[in-house]
Design a protein around this nucleic acid. Structure first.
Lengths: 208, 208
DNA sequence: CACTAGAGATAGTGCTACTATCCAGTCCGA
DNA sequence: TCGGACTGGATAGTAGCACTATCTCTAGTG
């Protein structure tokens, strides 16, 4: 398969494919001459994966690269791959110098997670996301304490438990890794979209 | 309060405040002279709201403006405000010319929503989000049909029902509207973050 | 053997969210 | 009352991102 066919198959413009290769998201084809190369089904799949992460997951190129690197790291356990993917997906890394206010609510969040009995790494970026959300809620509505999160935590726990129990159609390690990572991203979008639809449904029943 | 004080209070740089005023996100202060103006608590609150939508919700300036316009539209019912906010939040509007493939899965999604008994508007952007997600799942793993979404739909339904039943600390219409819209955005981030933590927890138990 | 197509390198584009500079006017302490 | 810091408003500049266009040289094709 030549590049133009790869492009047609995946509906990605040729210059964009070249760009992805330059950026290291996509391996170059196997050369068949000084200026010809051959692409295969692996390229199609990888390209589709990139587009899903970009368009459904809304990730930036740098994030996509990190996710792909995690997927490709054969020496990592599934748990480690998922952890790396989570780091890559996070909107907020640990701030270099968090404000005292933020540090304060972060402690509340940490204690909350502790109380749930969840064993998660101390540097999980989601902790900071929660802290920022809680700080905003405190400042604007005087919401006190992370207990507001409890119903969401229960729901998240149930969802995650059933997700981790599910298996991909293709049971190889590579297939499993892809399934886990893309599942995180795609079903996140699904859950968000469904929550909005459900909100509209209940809002109609209540206010309209 | 002068602009520099507003800036200090909210930790938003002065040029950025000016920018928000230019862009119509923030009303200008009441002038006390040819080049002096006075800002009040309303400005502080609105500015914080803008930052929450930007930083926790990850919205762009144009999206923030639409959300604020919905909040300010006194003549709309709560249900209408929420609908407008959802439109503003959506990553994907209806494509001008959807591919036949996408249109096909969109029909599956519509039927799925119908079967749930949810009454949501036919042009809800979340329908397209779901269609794109389903198309990606089909193409990469041969997932067939929107029934994959069922567990998520049940969870979303429960979450939304309890959310719509909750009341803000401040019960005025303006307070209620802010609460609903910001709640949509902030608790979405919360739910996402908690799902990731829960995934890590279960992944550790299973794979590590 | 003209001509389309391909690969790779380099440079340019359009958009977004700020950020910097400038200016005339104002405030305020010595 | 005067000088320096500060103000609001206008205009221009910047950095980052995700492509997109162009150029050059080479390969295959009717």
């Amino acid at each position: 398969m030549r590049m133009s066919e790869l492009s047609r198959e995946t509906e990605v413009p040729v210059p964009t494919v070249k760009y992805y290769i330059r950026e290291g998201l996509l391996p170059s084809g196997s050369p068949t001459g000084p200026n010809q190369a051959e692409y295969g089904q692996d390229h199609v799949r990888r390209l589709r994966l990139i587009r899903v992460l970009r368009e459904v997951g809304g990730l930036g190129i740098a994030q996509v690269r990190k996710v792909l690197e995690a997927i490709d790291a054969e020496e990592l356990s599934l748990h480690e791959v998922l952890g790396r993917a989570h780091h890559a997906l996070a909107p907020s890394e640990e701030p270099s110098e968090p404000s005292p206010e933020l540090a304060r609510v972060k402690e509340k969040v940490d204690r909350f997670i502790e109380d749930l009995g969840w064993r998660v790494s101390a540097d999980a970026p989601a902790r900071w996301t929660l802290a920022e959300a809680l700080l905003a809620l405190e400042r604007m509505w005087g919401v006190e304490g992370a207990e507001t999160f409890l119903p969401y935590a229960r729901v998240a726990d149930r969802v995650a438990a059933s997700e981790l129990a599910s298996r991909p159609p293709n049971g190889s390690r590579a297939g499993m890794v892809e399934w886990m990572v893309v599942g995180t991203v795609v079903y996140e979008a699904v859950l968000t979209a469904l929550r909005r639809l459900a909100q509209e449904h209940h809002s109609a029943r209540r206010f309209a």
